[in-house]
């Protein structure tokens, strides 16, 4: 994706997009701007903030009830002595999840979205004013439970983690390709329930992810019996180290499918400049 305007123009679709059919008496203006450019500008601004504070930001996405908050509780218990962690919680209603996180002794800020089915970069930006970013190593954004809409919105984060609980079925990656294509890591959760299920195949779930040409790692995880906890912690630590190394080279990390596309760098209609204090 183009860093300037967030468009999806590639060498493959360039000619298709440029093709126009002029009409008599009417001026046709070629625009070529991503419909999400407003969100994507805000996302880049958020990412700049994160990078100044050197905090790795992970966007947790899944269906409702697949264990995102339980994953966070277990992770915080394990890492709170070695890393400074905070959480942004997105939910339609209630502050239940925020209270669960705060009970673990780390800062949490709740975004109540009302009827909105996803977090966007502007909502996250508002939440950032309530967190002391410069004191953090790791920030989790627990997105609204939804396998559709959250995948389309860059929040300025660095990595996408998608949870798939075993009760949902192993064909979810095939049913929701937009979401699972964006995963930098797929976490199969609630594996302690596997003995009670006869229709969930770990192999098939991984194969369905692979079919999306996504070679992201898959971790089988249970916050009840601790399966996969070590692998998850190692993944997190590796990502933090990789991110810090990128920062030293004045680069940043981007989640899957939010890549730069150098082909088209047309300016947006209302260019904005966001000064970031060093």
């Amino acid at each position: 994706m183009c860093n300037t305007c967030g468009c999806n123009i590639t060498p493959g679709n360039h000619s298709l997009v440029m093709a126009e059919q002029p009409k008599n008496g009417v001026t046709t203006v070629s625009v070529l701007q991503n419909l999400l450019s407003h969100n994507n500008h805000q996302a880049e601004h958020n990412r700049a903030h994160f990078d100044v504070s050197k905090v790795l930001v992970i966007n947790l996405m899944s269906s409702p009830g697949s264990g995102k908050t339980a994953l966070l509780e277990a992770t915080i218990k394990r890492l709170r002595d070695s890393l400074k962690i905070a959480v942004i919680e997105g939910d339609l209603e209630t502050e239940n999840d925020t209270k669960r996180i705060q009970a673990q002794g780390v800062p949490a800020y709740q975004i109540t979205t009302g009827t909105a089915c996803h977090l966007d970069a502007h909502l996250v930006h508002t939440a950032l004013h309530h967190l002391a970013l410069e004191n953090l190593d790791l920030l989790f954004i627990e997105n609204v439970g939804n396998l559709v809409c959250p995948a389309s919105f860059d929040l300025g984060h660095h990595r996408n983690v998608v949870l798939l609980s075993v009760t949902e079925g192993d064909d979810k990656p095939a049913k929701y390709p937009v979401m699972f294509r964006s995963a930098d890591l797929m976490l199969i959760s609630k594996t302690d329930l596997l003995p009670h299920l006869d229709d969930f195949s770990l192999r098939k779930a991984a194969q369905n992810l692979h079919n999306l040409a996504n070679v992201a790692p898959v971790i089988e995880f249970s916050s009840k019996d601790g399966e996969g906890m070590d692998a998850w912690i190692v993944w997190l630590q590796t990502e933090i180290a990789a991110y810090q190394a990128l920062l030293l080279n004045k680069q940043t990390q981007r989640p899957k499918i939010q890549q730069n596309n150098p082909l088209l760098d047309s300016k947006p209609n209302k260019p904005k400049f966001y000064p970031v204090n060093k």
Partner: peptide, 21 residues
């Protein structure tokens, strides 16, 4: 191979606007 690039299919683009001037 999973080493594939998507060259079309994830576009979300305002391509053009026809205006009466």
């Amino acid at each position: 191979s999973p080493e594939t690039n998507l060259i079309s299919g994830d576009e979300l683009i305002l391509a053009s606007v026809a205006l009466s001037v």
